[in-house]
Nucleic acid binder design. Structure first.
Lengths: 343, 343
DNA sequence: TTTAGCACTCACTAAGACAGAGTGCTAACT
DNA sequence: AGTTAGCACTCTGTCTTAGTGAGTGCTAAA
């Protein structure tokens, strides 16, 4: 859909006014806004056209116009088209990200910052183990039948899991096996490792290598199920008048608790280019019909590790949020790479 | 404060009616409730007394009565007095808690269950490392200047932290140091270990023991700051009509995000006996003026590890919640001990 | 001590009137 | 042909008024 420049300007002005005041905007008020030098009557004509195109609609005959999801979509596409001159922030701007002691700390700081600047709830898909590179494995015997597996990624994430075995090998054997797996898989991603391990048939061979591979199969089997999705700034969602009615908020929170429902979008954002946006009913979940989710991947140059996003009412300040997300994503990527460099 | 039996019955009936219907209860309706065989007029007299005592109050001259925080307090104390015949659940009732793979899994399952039965938000202070017993330490060298410390507690919790050193000792040295610390501290709680380590002066001695102790000081220094408090079922809070007005919900969520504000209460519950209750403005935080928090400690016979609680509107079903908490706490304690036994 | 009766208070609701904002249409203007 | 001014119309929100119902407190009788 293509609009002439004037219609486009009026549409964006309507949207921006509505975002600001949360009230339907009428032709007369619109005429008063600086930058719109047309009479109310002319504006009415244009508005009528826009309504016909489904970009805005009115609640009652004598009410002002409100943007539809389609309208927002047009608006956001416009922003992103004009925004192509992608701003790359110089590391200096990020301040001292060095202090961070852990990945979790970095994630938390950055999401809190994002919440603060966007005034929305923020969400993060934390670095996906599957996508990150293997750095180190270690086995710690805990008893007769249990071994603690410690996996470290190149990005400094540590994963623990306890394995139940029929019989726990000797410490020396464990150490040898760890070394073996280490040499075999260094710098590969966990997904690659899993694939490779799947390929090897499980023999009954009792040789050290065979034994190591059998153990490796268990150890590297990261459960995809419970993905690490964290929310922060939930309180922000409560402040918007947009979700006033009858437990709509409750529905939204239910969806957010059931994290699997937004995980799809976050994964898509991880792999996609730039900021991904889902507006209102574009969301696959009905409960989020009045929400928009924006997310953007982060990670080192080549490998995208996860994504960071923002959830708020459809009536949110898109330009601001998109900028903030872009910034946060770059900052996060930088902080992670710096964290990595220290190794 | 002591009430005669009739006043007490009327008070509890008022409270129970109010909890059920969320509407002020008047004398006439109260007279109709089964179990109250008095005329409305008599009830009015009693209500007048109760109002005088500050146990109930009325919003307007011609409105029914609503319990005050003091009234709820009386009610809850009564419940807990009658409840002294503390129910101990037989392990069989808990079903198969064996399947759980991790402590986190156990916590999550049980809190979700608690959310479901109480219809409130639930909160958990996860097993406090400081209070649990040390089982195993291991050092994994990550590079020239970094060592990953892995700490395992008797309860099966695993803690990781990365230490930055001027120079990372040789793997063999690290192993020896781990063995040394292991022997020194096995079965002590982390708090005890920290205390003990504090007592030892840091000498410049380059002997293995001295070196191990220096490393130990860093390794065992669990940061108390970021305590592990997890919420679940936040959506439940959104459904109550009790927090209708102007961002009260937002305030509550802000408090819950700033977990430190409820941590005090949870610690108190950890150490206290039975279910601890904070009603309405008894809470130290103003934002929770219309909320009640209930919590109860859990842990092995001797050692209390943490606490599990429930947050909801002041107008909540106390008897039900108290029972549910008692049950959940016992179930959790059992599941944890079982998890531990497997070692 | 309990109860019935009565007068009074006050919130909530419905109905009507009115103001305000907004629209669409038509005719005049550039 | 595009733009603007004017006008009639629609509809919501608010204000007022009146009426209803629930609830109370007080008094007097049982």
């Amino acid at each position: 859909m293509e609009l002439d420049q004037r219609s486009e300007q009026i549409l964006t002005t309507i949207i921006e006014q509505y975002i600001q005041n949360a009230e339907p905007v009428g032709s007369r008020n619109l005429a008063k806004v600086v930058g719109v030098d047309l009479s109310a009557a002319t504006i009415r004509n244009v508005m009528s056209d826009l309504t016909g195109l489904g970009l805005i609609h009115q609640l009652h005959t004598s009410a002002g116009r409100v943007p539809t999801d389609v309208g927002y979509r047009y608006y956001v596409d416009l922003i992103q088209k004009n925004n192509k001159s992608h701003a790359s922030y110089s590391p200096k701007k990020f301040g001292d990200t060095k202090k961070a002691k852990s990945i979790e700390g970095i994630l938390q700081t950055i999401t809190e910052e994002l919440v603060q600047t966007t005034n929305c709830t923020s969400v993060i898909l934390s670095p996906q183990a599957g996508k990150s590179q293997f750095k180190k494995i270690d086995f710690i015997p805990l008893g007769q039948t249990q071994v603690l597996v410690v996996l470290v990624t190149q990005t400094g994430m540590v994963k623990n899991r306890i394995l139940n075995l029929k019989h726990c090998p000797e410490p020396e054997t464990l150490e040898k096996m760890a070394k073996l797996l280490q040499e075999l898989f260094t710098k590969m991603t966990f997904s690659q490792i899993q694939e490779k391990l799947m390929g090897v048939l499980s023999s009954e061979d009792t040789g050290l290598t065979a034994q190591a591979i059998r153990l490796g199969k268990k150890a590297f089997n990261l459960d995809q199920e419970n993905e690490d999705i964290y929310l922060s700034g939930e309180s922000k969602l409560c402040s918007f008048p947009d979700f006033g009615l009858q437990g709509e908020l409750a529905g939204i929170f239910q969806v957010l608790e059931e994290k699997s429902l937004i995980s799809g979008f976050l994964h898509q954002a991880t792999n996609g280019e730039g900021v991904q946006v889902a507006i209102g009913h574009e969301n696959s979940v009905r409960e989020l019909g009045h929400c928009s989710i924006l997310a953007m991947g982060y990670g080192n140059a080549g490998i995208k590790l996860g994504s960071i996003g923002v959830i708020g009412p459809t009536r949110m300040n898109y330009p601001k949020v998109i900028k903030a997300l872009d910034y946060s994503s770059q900052k996060l990527s930088f902080a992670l790479s710096q964290f990595l460099d220290e190794y």
